[in-house]
Design a binder for these strands. Structure first.
Lengths: 196, 196
DNA sequence: GATGAAATTAGTTCAAG
DNA sequence: CTTGAACTAATTTCATC
């Protein structure tokens, strides 16, 4: 994966705060020219770092219905499918799949339609149990973090960037700055079978 | 609160899908002129329906650290404070406050810094218990829903829009198309003390 | 409140370092 | 990979309906 430099990160930070900011203004702030900003944004989209330009909408002012957090415990091996199925429902806005096999979804539905949403989107045999919590508030505060909480590579001690990898060893998470450092650790037999 | 019409909703839908879409293109699609699109978008921002123009960033390609879902059970009356405190942390991206007093946050942190995030942001006495789950996938699929799952007003039977209200009666959620319908129900003594 | 034409401002292309 | 200049396109202003 290609490297992102500080200019890319700064452009992301500025766009996250205001995605309609003129490229000329971004160019001024990060110290490059407008065509360069345009090129880099295109590249960030091609890389999949920018998934899309969008709005943060306050749904409590907008949608008819009740906002809920649906927490589904999935059958082994079906977590990804369940996450995808829920994500494809248009009442579902945000989906999180967890390492322990549950899927958490934020949806706006009439209270008695939660079962309906699950039935329409998820095969019953994939749902071990589920839990629904009514939301009273929801906030999105995206930021492209700087170097706060930077991780250290367990092998070489360098800072772990977005190109790094992580693994689980005896239940503890360990980070590596690169796949070669991760492989070095693996060769030393440090990695458990459930490494990620 | 002023009414949003179908044109507003259609503009929101188009911007959620692509917030950098030219206003002239939106104007074509919804059948008004570009200045009207511009005016309406300004109005939607003033109303707080549009919270901001932003990016959907794939954090798994970007941030050093591990993505987690932090689930905090808060002390009575502190839910809102805890939600705000967590939201102000720059490693925290999304915060949900639930009616049962828990706060769920999506954050990107080194695994062993979850306690640190909580300690830095939330008074210990406000945390009754917490739980952290490692995320393997996270998706955001915002859509401005149409009339799917439209609610019916419990009093007059009309469709409940964003201007509607809801209340809880004997543990069941009931929707009203307006505050006057809600008040009518209240006068008939149907509303429990925990109505929302 | 909405519009079309004009003016301003932004974005992209391209030739070149 | 970057730029400045030229070109193209988008947005806002404003007078008018």
């Amino acid at each position: 994966m290609p490297q992102l430099d500080d200019t890319d990160l700064e452009i992301l930070r500025l766009l996250v705060a205001n995605a309609r900011r003129p490229y000329s203004e971004i160019a001024d702030k990060v110290g490059v020219s407008p065509p360069t900003v345009s090129d880099r944004i295109d590249r960030l989209q091609e890389l999949g770092v920018i998934r899309r330009f969008t709005l943060d909408v306050d749904r409590s002012t907008l949608d008819a219905g009740i906002q809920v957090l649906i927490d589904v415990s999935t059958a082994p091996g079906t977590t990804e499918d369940v996450a995808e199925s829920l994500a494809s429902q248009n009442v579902v806005e945000h989906v999180y799949a967890t390492a322990d096999g549950s899927v958490v979804a934020h949806a706006t539905v009439p209270e008695d339609a939660v079962h309906e949403v699950l039935e329409e989107s998820v095969a019953t045999e994939n749902v071990e149990s589920f839990d629904v919590r009514l939301l009273t508030d929801e906030q999105w505060t995206p930021e492209v973090s700087g170097t706060a909480f930077a991780l250290e590579c367990a092998v070489c001690g360098d800072e772990v960037t977005s190109q790094g990898e992580t693994a689980r060893i005896d239940g503890e998470f360990v980070a590596f700055c690169s796949s070669s450092c991760r492989e070095a650790a693996a060769e030393e037999g440090q990695l458990a079978a459930d490494s990620i």
